[in-house]
């Protein structure tokens, strides 16, 4: 299993559009991918899970992936957070 810490860097937080981007990216991979916020652990392929997590600006999250293509999955999701989901 691989994991990496990051923060929500876009001002608006994880609203519908960023959540859809995460799910789309995660669904490309075989691995099981989780996003953790505090004590909550959410399946990154579940859009309602990510939305109801309610992660606002500057929230710390941990991305973790486990499976055959775990490194690729982790990098893809991490770079999404890094790119601020192409937002402000």
């Amino acid at each position: 299993m691989v994991q990496k810490n990051t923060k929500v860097k876009n001002r608006a937080g994880l609203h519908a559009r960023p959540a859809a981007m995460i799910v789309q990216a995660a669904s490309q991979f075989e691995s099981t991918i989780y996003i953790e916020k505090g004590s909550e652990k959410i399946n990154a392929k579940s859009i309602m899970g990510i939305l109801t997590m309610g992660a606002g600006y500057d929230t710390e999250v941990v991305i973790s992936a486990e499976g055959a293509d775990e490194q690729g999955a982790l990098d893809a999701l991490y770079s999404l957070f890094e790119s601020r989901f192409e937002e402000e």
Binding site: A16, I47, M48, L51, T52, G54
Partner: peptide, 17 residues
Amino acid sequence: SDDRVLSHHMEIRGLGI
């Protein structure tokens, strides 16, 4: 259900939320 504000919504593939 998770949260009062966000509860009782569903995501259906092809329809959305």
